[in-house]
Design a protein around this nucleic acid. Structure first.
Length: 540
DNA sequence: TTAGGCTTTG
């Protein structure tokens, strides 16, 4: 039966002799002393230090009798550690003689609870082993406030070095964390895909802001505070200094959906990390790994903020570029599952007239529209994109549907255009009560839908008219009998109950477009007579 | 006895 030792939490340590179980935060390789022996410096920590660390120096004449620490994160049990003052601070000393004993356990969560072999002896109980188990879990958790460091024998390359010369991840100890699960004060590694990159004019700052996603957030993340984003800054970056992948932005809902549905997370990258060769090459769609991103509390701790602080490369803090091959398979699988879970309700637009424009942001659309005429959608600063027919152009737009009209039976009637089958006069109605056509010949109407969607992208929102064909294309099978349903709505014989049920069915189907996203071609037309612009969605 | 890291964080 092993002797039962009493262990001191590092927070409560003072000058004297203590038994300690702690995580190795950092260690230096053994060095020869001026005398005959060896020294090895380490810093250790435990949860009681709340991210702080405690220095320990091991001394021994025989290099093989020093603690066999292999990597940061290993757990060390120390008996009779001598604590004294050094340069105004407490420091532990484990001398080779006078009873100091230790056992070092591997820090990986799935490694066995057995110490590394060592010629020296240190007893431990089941309770001690459980503490080792606890500390190992804490170090590898989403909430560990320690910045994870590299083993001393891993030579870090300069930040400018190409990514293929970097330290292979297999040599690292700490597993990666889902972005949404990071806890306040923690330093963690993450792997993710870039949705957008924000920068500033160089005279303001060279720091960058990354918007990342790593799949659909895990359910437990919903109980954690939302993330601080670039929108929360006093001087948010300008849209013209951003680069984005429109599909990824639409899938994640980046800056378009409410925070609880936006799958993207903002990471602030400072100093040399923002200016490294790797960072300069980054583009939306890239897969990256960030070593030691720091999660801080902001705005009175109601938000979490992710920072890649300047410096720290010596301890492995950095951004790495990954490929589909080098990225962890579970990340690639999660991204695919996320794309599948949020498919567009259109197939990608391939309209020939819009092809040369590529995927346009709506702010471009605004510019074009305002050049077409005094539009209601915004100011202009750029040149027209369509020279042949300034009254009309096609634009490809990728955006989230944030609103659909009609969204209730009441609003449905305001979104119908009634055309008299006798004289062709069109009119709008405000209630289910059908008017009498001024021609007086007939009360037979054709009902044309004037349905709208509000589309959002990073730059803003735009209201788009959708034709009958477009409605059927976007709402799918739910709207396959739209024409028949509309006929029923304006029929003189159908009962009010039938009309109400039909109206509910149409608006319910149309409302289901909301929170989907589209990649579609819009037709922008200036009215030849009025100074208005219509924007309609071109259905396939 | 010996020897005892880096940084300050937007």
């Amino acid at each position: 039966m092993a002797a039962q030792y009493t262990f001191t939490d590092l927070r409560n340590i003072n000058v004297g002799c203590h038994n300690v179980i702690a995580v190795v935060k950092f260690f230096k390789k053994p060095q020869k002393t001026k005398g005959t022996g060896y020294s090895m410096f380490a810093s250790v920590s435990d949860p009681s230090l709340c991210g702080d660390k405690f220095p320990v120096i091991f001394l021994c004449n025989n290099i093989d009798h020093l603690p066999p620490i292999r990597t940061p994160g290993d757990i060390i049990i120390m008996h009779r550690l001598k604590v004294s003052m050094y340069r105004g601070s407490l420091q532990g000393c484990g001398p080779g003689s006078s009873g100091f004993a230790f056992a070092v356990f591997p820090g990986l969560c799935d490694s066995p609870l057995t110490p590394y072999p060592s010629p020296t002896n240190c007893s431990f109980t089941d309770a001690d082993l459980f503490r080792v188990f606890e500390l190992r879990g804490w170090y590898n958790s989403d909430s560990c406030p320690l910045e994870k460091e590299l083993p001393p024998d891993v030579v870090m390359t300069e930040p400018q070095a190409p990514s293929n010369q970097m330290v292979p991840f297999a040599e690292r100890v700490v597993p990666s964390t889902r972005i949404h699960s990071i806890m306040k004060n923690a330093f963690v590694n993450i792997e993710a895909q870039i949705v957008a990159i924000y920068s500033y004019p160089p005279e303001i700052t060279r720091d960058i802001i990354l918007s990342l996603w790593d799949g659909q957030p895990p359910p437990e993340a919903a109980s954690l505070p939302p993330f601080y984003t670039h929108h929360d800054l006093d001087r948010p970056p300008h849209i013209s200094d951003s680069r984005t992948d429109p599909h990824l932005a639409a899938i994640t809902g980046h800056s378009m959906l409410p925070a609880n549905e936006d799958w993207s997370v903002t990471v602030f990258v400072f100093d040399e990390h923002a200016q490294s060769a790797v960072a300069k090459k980054l583009k939306p769609g890239d897969l990256i790994r960030i070593i030691n991103v720091h999660c801080t509390g902001k705005l009175g701790h109601v938000r979490r903020k992710l920072d890649v602080h300047g410096g720290g490369q010596k301890y492995g803090r950095r951004i790495e570029l990954l490929t589909e091959e080098t990225a962890p398979p579970d990340l690639v699988a999660r991204l695919k599952a996320g794309r599948d879970a949020r498919k567009p309700i259109t197939t990608p637009s391939q309209s020939p007239g819009a092809a040369d424009l590529g995927v346009l942001l709506i702010w471009k659309l605004r510019d074009v529209v305002s050049l077409l005429g005094p539009a209601a959608v915004g100011p202009s600063t750029t040149t027209p994109l369509h020279h042949n027919n300034p009254a009309m152009c096609r634009l490809r737009v990728c955006g989230r549907v944030v609103r659909a009209r009609p969204n209730s039976p009441r609003s449905l009637f305001r979104c119908l255009l009634l055309v008299c089958r006798s004289c062709g006069t069109s009119s709008r109605i405000k209630s289910p009560t059908l008017p009498m056509c001024p021609c007086g010949k007939s009360t037979h109407f054709l009902a044309l839908p004037m349905f709208y969607l509000v589309l959002a992208d990073l730059s803003g929102r735009v209201c788009v008219l959708v034709s009958s064909r477009g409605i059927r294309a976007l709402a799918g099978p739910d709207m396959s009998s739209l024409r028949r349903q509309l006929r029923l709505l304006v029929s003189a014989t159908a009962s009010p109950q039938t009309k109400r049920a039909t109206a509910r069915s149409i608006t319910a189907a149309w409302s289901r477009c909301v929170s989907s996203w589209i990649d579609a071609t819009l037709l922008v037309k200036r009215s030849p007579t009025k100074s208005t612009v219509s924007i309609s969605l071109l259905a396939k």
